[in-house]
């Protein structure tokens, strides 16, 4: 008996340990170390004295950190709101339409997903060229007689972030569309049939029957949108640069974090303490936002 137990334990270890070792070393340990490092002052790569929450205090009230941080966080909020509002609304609409088997739905479904496959970097550089003052977008506007609307899409503070978000929606809207399509397709046909027999219109059908049943997908997409919005980096890096030009108007937590950690633009020196603190804030926000989103939609979830 003893012997088989030992043998079983060895087998389990053999199967589980290689993966567990990698995850511990490259996910759990760095996570823990971020938290740990954020509580110290740093001189380049050398850990200095324990300073408690000083790094966090600096981010929320010290110059110039506070200004940069709140500016970046504001942009991340913009990313989240606009993505939820525009991309996910279009996603639900497309997903629902595709599920209604309109002519050509199989074709649409395949095509919509194409940009999702591309790297953000390639998409960012491509649209970065198109959105230049001399680029294709302005040329198209002039061709259509809308030359008055031509502008430096990535060069003006008021619209630069909006332009980048628009490009990101272009790339990603196929994803929520197909997730919602799968969700609507999973709604039992007799549910819909019964509603039709009762003479319910399409609009009521969607809001009263379909939507409550696809709430789990809405949750998943919301959580992914939160995570995605907090992690914006490549989009800004490729289209307006690491320092979020013009005048930090496109700066995000991701780019600010990178500059702080690797000391590229602002100060010239890496600031490990502040950088770690920003990392911890990113983790906490991701965690809190996901939990809130899951709880708030779960209360509206309907079980069949």
């Amino acid at each position: 008996m003893m012997k088989t137990d030992v043998r079983k334990g060895l087998w389990i270890s053999f199967f589980v340990l290689p993966g567990l070792l990698v995850v511990t070393l490259f996910i759990l340990l760095p996570l823990f170390m971020s938290l740990f490092n954020s509580l110290f002052s740093w001189n380049q790569l050398l850990r200095g004295a324990f300073v408690g929450l000083e790094n966090f205090r600096k981010i929320f009230s010290g110059y110039p950190y506070r200004e940069r941080f709140l500016n970046a966080l504001g942009n991340n909020a913009k990313w989240f709101l606009l993505t939820m509002l525009i991309q996910n609304t279009i996603g639900i609409l497309f997903g629902y339409l595709l599920s209604r088997r309109l002519p050509g739905h199989g074709f649409f479904k395949r095509i919509f997903f194409i940009p999702v496959l591309f790297s953000i970097v390639a998409v960012g550089f491509l649209w970065g060229l198109y959105l230049k003052p001399t680029g294709l977008v302005n040329a198209a506007l002039r061709l259509m007689g809308l030359g008055a609307y031509a502008r430096a899409w990535l060069g003006q503070e008021e619209i630069a972030t909006l332009s980048i978000i628009a490009v990101n929606i272009w790339r990603w809207v196929g994803f929520p569309s197909l997730v919602f399509l799968a969700a609507v397709d999973a709604v039992p046909a007799d549910c819909l049939e019964a509603a039709y027999l009762d003479g319910v219109g399409e609009w009521t059908l969607f809001w009263r029957i379909v939507f409550p049943l696809i709430i789990p997908s809405v949750t998943v997409i919301s959580v992914l949108t939160i995570i995605g919005s907090l992690n914006v980096f490549e989009q800004v890096y490729t289209m307006t640069g690491l320092d979020g030009s013009p005048n930090f108007s496109t700066d995000t937590i991701g780019t600010l974090f990178y500059r702080t950690a690797f000391g590229s633009v602002d100060s010239g020196n890496p600031e490990i303490g502040i950088g770690s603190a920003i990392g911890v804030i990113i983790y906490s926000l991701t965690f809190i936002a996901s939990i809130v989103s899951i709880i708030s939609t779960r209360s509206r979830e309907v079980e069949l």
């Binding site: 995850v23 996910i27 759990l28 170390m33 490092n37 907090l230 911890v280 990113i282 991701t286």
Partner: peptide
């Protein structure tokens, strides 16, 4: 294993860099 599923590993780039 699952603890890393939702969290963005990018945010831990500093300890990863040192490691």
């Amino acid at each position: 294993f699952l603890s890393g599923i939702m969290l963005p590993l990018k945010a831990a780039i500093i300890p990863l860099f040192i490691l």
